[in-house]
Write a protein that binds this DNA or RNA. Structure first.
Length: 439
RNA sequence: GGGAGCGUAGCUCAGCCUGGCAGAGCACCGCGCUGUGGACGCGGGGGUCGCGGGUUCAAGUCCCGUCGCUCCUCCCA
């Protein structure tokens, strides 16, 4: 029986991988522009890290996490998200001891056992930033600005995006708000769906983003977290709003936005696309001022976001008019006969060491066919046959102009680039959202 | 977790309703054109019809199950 890929795990084939490479390059460049440095935590952690950090009662941990024992019986987990890992590393390596703000970013695979659908795989990829060590609302604003900036760089128009924003307060405010929700929803318990009746005990905040139609009436009139903020949290949030105004970033206050991870405090936000269907959130994040302490570090505030690569690729590919057939080689070597075939590999090796992208007709097609492949893949065809080799020469054909010339093999190999026509500008994958540096 | 649709050549799909030789276009290979590319013409190779079972003289087609994909719901990135 044929072995196939596991459900929810998919291959990114070369054609699509080009898009991923460009996205990753662009994301790294932009994060660097804001002073973030890459961190690469492992994909496997103790399961306990996520149970404590993300929250035992969250769907992510108790329903969707890949958990397994290693040979010593330790419970391990494939990371379902990266913030907990980044914070663990921050504590473990004493990054706080440097007495500075730590600005870290990551890009990599995450794992959640969910029902796969478009834009949602079981192995998926997230990029994200974490800024640890400051309570300044300007930092919240910077993180949100970075999120917007990234989407614009990727080529998404501002009009197609919207920012949902809320503040859910600090741990001092939370008990009062939670109590208010509990007593409010208890009175209307009969209206709630089964899940929400359970959430009433476990975590009444989660009722707020329930999508069940029957719950909507009760949710609409529910207490709002903004009304339960302490003085400091209110001031923090108001300052954030004014910073966003200064930056010209529009937001929609959404009292129902609470997000599905327990570590959030104060600011929570999502940046969404109007071009996506059910999975419209491109990235989400917020503040987590208690997480470092919760995981055994010194009290340290933090703020960050995470975004899904798959969804970005999805939106981005709708905006691209890529030409996958554009030649990617400088030279395609076409040997003729046995002599040519024997000389070809050596010529290839010399070309590549001179920085010329080159490949060889390995399949043994007819000359006519090989020339046709050459025209598709390269800008030059290099013919090596008995006629050429007899006089220590080669035939170089410019496939755009159709002109060919006979050159001395030794002269050509001494500086092959001098004989090759330069790359035409704007050659590949039109509409590149992340223009490469030239030179 | 719940609901719906779809799995046929490398790719896009027709054929299924109404059971009777497994097809088209693109791609690939050869020839026309013996050492020179995109066009054109002619020819060719390719398929456990997702998988398993059932009904039938006969199943790609009908029935049941199963796996996968897509969409909605849910969850979220």
């Amino acid at each position: 029986m044929r072995v196939e890929s596991v459900r929810g795990m998919r291959d990114i084939l070369p054609e699509e991988a080009v898009l991923w490479q460009r996205l990753e390059e662009g994301i790294r460049a932009l994060f660097a522009l804001y002073g973030y440095k890459e961190i690469r935590p492992p994909l496997v952690e103790l399961a306990e890290l996520f149970a404590r950090g993300v929250g035992e009662a969250t769907d992510i941990v108790h329903k969707e996490m890949y958990v397994f024992p290693d040979k010593k019986g330790q419970m391990l987990a494939l990371r379902p998200e990266a913030t907990a890992s980044v914070v663990r590393a921050y504590i473990e390596h004493g990054l706080y001891a440097k007495g500075d703000l730590a600005k870290l970013y990551y890009i990599g695979p995450m794992f959640r056992y969910e029902k796969p659908q478009k834009g949602r795989q079981r192995q998926f990829h997230q990029y994200g930033v974490e800024a640890l060590g400051s309570l300044d609302p300007a930092l919240d604003a910077e993180v949100i600005d970075l999120a917007w900036h990234l989407m614009e760089r990727v080529g998404l128009a501002r009009e197609g995006l919207y920012l949902r924003l809320n503040s859910i307060g600090c741990r001092e405010d939370r008990p009062a708000f939670r109590e208010a929700l509990r007593s409010y929803f208890s009175a209307r318990k009969a209206e709630l769906c089964g899940d929400c009746q359970r959430r009433l005990e476990e975590n009444p905040l989660r009722i707020l983003d329930c999508k069940e139609p029957q719950c909507q009436g009760a949710i609409a009139e529910a207490p709002k977290s903004l009304d339960y903020l302490c003085q400091k949290c209110r001031a923090h949030f108001e300052e954030l709003l004014s910073f966003l105004q200064d930056l010209g970033l529009a937001y929609e206050l959404d009292p129902r936005l609470v997000r599905g991870i327990d570590y959030y405090t104060r600011t929570v936000f999502e940046l969404c696309s109007r071009e996506l269907g059910a999975q419209d959130a491109l990235l989400g994040g917020g503040r987590y001022d208690d997480l470092v302490e919760l995981l055994g570090g010194p009290p340290t505030p933090g703020v960050g976001f995470a975004g899904g690569m798959e969804r970005l690729v999805l939106v981005l590919s709708q905006h691209l008019t890529a030409n996958p057939d554009a030649p990617d080689l400088d030279v395609y070597v076409v040997p003729i006969g046995d002599e040519g075939r024997r000389k070809a590999l050596e010529v290839l090796a010399r070309l590549r060491r001179a920085g010329v992208a080159a490949d060889l007709e390995y399949v043994g097609r007819s000359l006519r066919k090989a020339m046709s492949v050459a025209a598709r893949r390269a800008r030059h065809a290099l013919l090596l046959g008995p006629d050429e080799l007899a006089q220590g020469a080669l035939t170089l054909k410019d496939l755009a102009s159709g002109e060919s010339q006979t050159l001395s093999l030794a002269e050509f190999l001494a500086d092959p680039r001098a004989f090759l026509s330069p790359l035409p500008s704007g050659e590949k994958g039109g509409g590149d959202p992340f223009p490469r540096k030239t030179g």
